[in-house]
Design a protein around this nucleic acid. Sequence first.
DNA 1: CCTCGATAGCTTTCCGGAAAGCTTTCGCCT
DNA 2: AGGCGAAAGCTTTCCGGAAAGCTATCGAGG
Lengths: 167, 167
Amino acid sequence: MTERPDRVDQLIATWRSELPTALTQTSELSKRVMVLAADLDAASRRVFDELGLTATEFDVLAALRRSGKPYRLRSNELSKSLLLSTGGTSNVINRLVARRLAERDADPGDGRSTRISLTPDGVALAEKALIANSRAHESVFAPVPARYVQAATGALRDVFTATDTRP
Amino acid sequence: MTERPDRVDQLIATWRSELPTALTQTSELSKRVMVLAADLDAASRRVFDELGLTATEFDVLAALRRSGKPYRLRSNELSKSLLLSTGGTSNVINRLVARRLAERDADPGDGRSTRISLTPDGVALAEKALIANSRAHESVFAPVPARYVQAATGALRDVFTATDTRP
DNA sequence: CCTCGATAGCTTTCCGGAAAGCTTTCGCCT
DNA sequence: AGGCGAAAGCTTTCCGGAAAGCTATCGAGG
């Protein structure tokens, strides 16, 4: 055991005494990632609540904004890239359209398909949400020295690199 | 840019060209953590689906198992430690009780309170789920050299250490 | 000893995304 | 040119946890 145990060390120690077979070589890394992600997610949710967005609505706005002008994607592209069901995606789009944050129109190249694009209000809200979310995540790391942030970023990049398509 | 860009590098590069103000010093770390957590979560969901459990049911079973014999906690303790609403917690407990995985009884020390404990079947399923989940997470890291896992674990520990109560 | 604000947690309603089911369209193959 | 399996996405139903609302109990303070 190194240094002063933190909450993940305490969790691992509890499992080691309660159910050692539940631990593997990568359990600590898994747990640290999941705990950190939960903290980041909680910070995100505070931002989304203030903006009146669900996490999925945010994801859709962000995906459209990231696609560049004219901020338009097919429904199918949104479902696949955001790992959503087609029905769920349609309902999220319905809500964004109702709030005039997005528009839906037919795809001239495929009669089955629809294209979703951001309205000017949608672009503005997407940008506001993205910046606010980034700031919220930055706040989570505020107490962490920059060299620790850089080291962790590099170490995780190595983890990603070792798995070509997925970690 | 180092080495061969991975999917997070591509995301960051896209944002740098689309909306640079949405990036901070910690954006890459945030994104790597969230992407990795999503992969781990997907692996978990496959395990939970096979066992007929929701993620929250799993969390409750795990929390009770982790508490050690007699695997009993108050409802309040479950809600707080798992960041659930009291209503939601009660409903999850209802389902576990209906499947005879948990039992609910009155707290002799506080008439308002109830105590939740695992049945023998609940203990068995909790252990099975915990081990399977650990294995699933281990599989996500299978392609990663042990030294990268250890480096990433250490680097994240430093991140945790820098924030006393939360990262 | 009594009052009352706070706590505990349950029931019921609400809501958002999953999923079932369906229609329309596409494109390959004969 | 027509048939048919697959694709696209919509509507509707389902489900699980959040949250509103409520009752019972606790414990501090007068």
